[in-house]
Amino acid sequence: MKPAIQTFDLTKKYGDLVAVDSLNLEVQQGEIYGFLGPNGAGKTTTILMLLGLTEPTSGRLSVLGFNPLREPLKLKRLVGYLPENLGFYDDMTARQNLLYTARLNGISMVDAEDRIRKLLEDVGLSDAVDKKVSTFSKGMKQRLGMADVLLKDPKLMLLDEPTTGIDPEGVRHILNLIVESREKGKTVLLSSHLLYQVQKVCDRVGIFVKGRLIASGSIQHLGKEVIAGDKYVVEAEVPDATPALEEIIGRVEGVVKVSRSGSTLTIECRSDIRGKVAKAIVSSGYTLTQIRSHEYALDEIYSRYFEGESKS
């Protein structure tokens, strides 16, 4: 199966600023790909290039088999885009806004009315169908945006920060809609800087910094890459920990490095030596309330990359 998105050395420059630098991205059909990176990393620019709304400076790209610059209309029929700063026509109701999208996409009015009613129900806006968008909260607009994207039944969804600035209930709702879309065979490119959410739904993630994709793969894969395989991290909770305890643990065989913040000790070692560490703590007269091996979360992978980036 051909990838849904493929870019080859895609580059976009604004004067001296390189917004996207030789991006080689591949997103498979039917997967949720998380696009991670801080603000200004070039995520939105990339999405705009994928849609043909921005012209690349150099490089090639293919989206659903189309060149976005040559066949923009064919592509835009198949792609749903949720912009970061979502705007609706304030004087129009939710239904009227969606009807306009339906007309632009050539959906027959009979179909559109039905689909809009159902979609607004799905996103939890059935009470606000005929309310003007100017009365909507940020979260409601974001839900309406999801309905707007789903209305054209796209093969590929480009979602730029879909969950920023909305309440946890709304986030859960939107993430559910995204996962449901994958189950219906849609491909999703999800751009975000909210790592926990990306971790929850994405099959693969790419980390984007200063216009470059510095890593791409599943979260487990990225985690291993960062931890460099040989290190093992243990966390211990000792309420009465002192600097002296750090030294005691440091003398345990196999321990590489000990650090402490408050009552939490983070111990890097060559293998899983939780037993030896626990024994050392308890036999020195300290209280050990908990000891666990550390699991790498996405934010850690992410910050590791940034540490590397800022050093270089």
């Binding site: 709304l53 064919k74 835009k76 912009p83 705007g87 026509y89 632009l104 707007d148």
Partner: peptide, 17 residues
Amino acid sequence: KERAKNTLVRLLSNPVH
């Protein structure tokens, strides 16, 4: 106005020249 209200980008992401 469409640019300021952020509706332009959404409008142009639909199949319209």
